[in-house]
């Protein structure tokens, strides 16, 4: 009987080990595998819209900020706290939301001033984390004074040495954010702030 007790103990230990053996497994995306926050059909292919959101607690202090009429918009922070203040200075945005292919939560895009700039978010719990900011015309500029139409030299003068550059892009990284200047004919054609989730 002593033997069987030992065997039972070993089997029970085996079961416990099996249940506990997953400490190295990928953490579930959220509280349930069913619930996945992602944008349906990559509106943001380079940065990857709908990336699983890991909120950077230092984003507000370490990331690039876009400032519009005194309102700081910082990728990696919660958009919900900015909606009212942005509406007060930029007017009501055009709003677009997209559910995931399979999941709940909405990825959202707020487009201001008829398209001058737009802000995209990904859901994280009750928050909508800013995943990207796009500047689309020369009525808005970065905090360092770069806008659509600026030259590559203007960018270098304002930001210094780039983290990465190609024939058509100049990229800077800061904290858990990046800013990408997309060039066409040597001039800035798009400016994109991205969060690196």
């Amino acid at each position: 009987m002593k033997n069987s007790k030992v065997i039972a103990a070993l089997l029970a230990a085996g079961m416990m080990f099996t249940l506990a053996a997953c400490s190295n497994e990928a953490a579930p995306v959220s509280s349930d595998v069913n619930v996945i926050s992602t944008e349906a059909q990559g509106n943001n292919p380079q940065q990857g819209a709908g990336v699983e959101v890991t909120v950077d607690p230092n984003a507000a202090s370490t990331n690039f900020a876009f400032t519009y009429e005194g309102v700081d918009v910082i990728v990696g922070t919660d958009m919900n706290s900015l909606v009212d203040s942005l509406a007060a200075v930029a007017g009501e945005p055009q709003y677009f939301e997209a559910a995931s292919c399979a999941g709940d939560g909405m990825s959202k895009t707020y487009t201001y001033k008829g398209g001058s700039f737009s802000i995209s978010t990904n859901p994280s719990g009750n928050s909508d984390i800013i995943s990207s900011i796009m500047l689309n015309d020369d009525t808005v500029s970065t905090a360092e004074g770069i806008c659509i139409g600026s030259s590559a030299d203007d960018i270098t003068a304002a930001y210094g040495e780039a983290s990465n550059s190609t024939e058509t892009t100049i990229t800077y990284e800061k904290g858990s954010s990046s800013i990408v200047f997309v060039l066409q004919d040597g001039k800035v054609n798009n400016i994109i702030y991205n969060a690196q989730f």
């Binding site: 509106n43 943001n44 292919p45 380079q46 940065q47 055009q94 677009f96 895009t109 487009t111 398209g115 737009s118 995209s120 990207s132 796009m134 689309n136 190609t166 058509t168 892009t169 990408v180 997309v182 054609n189 798009n190 994109i192």
Partner: peptide, 11 residues
């Protein structure tokens, strides 16, 4: 009612 402005393709 219209799509938001797409990010440009970098590649």
């Amino acid at each position: 009612v219209g799509y938001p402005i797409q990010q440009p393709l970098l590649d």
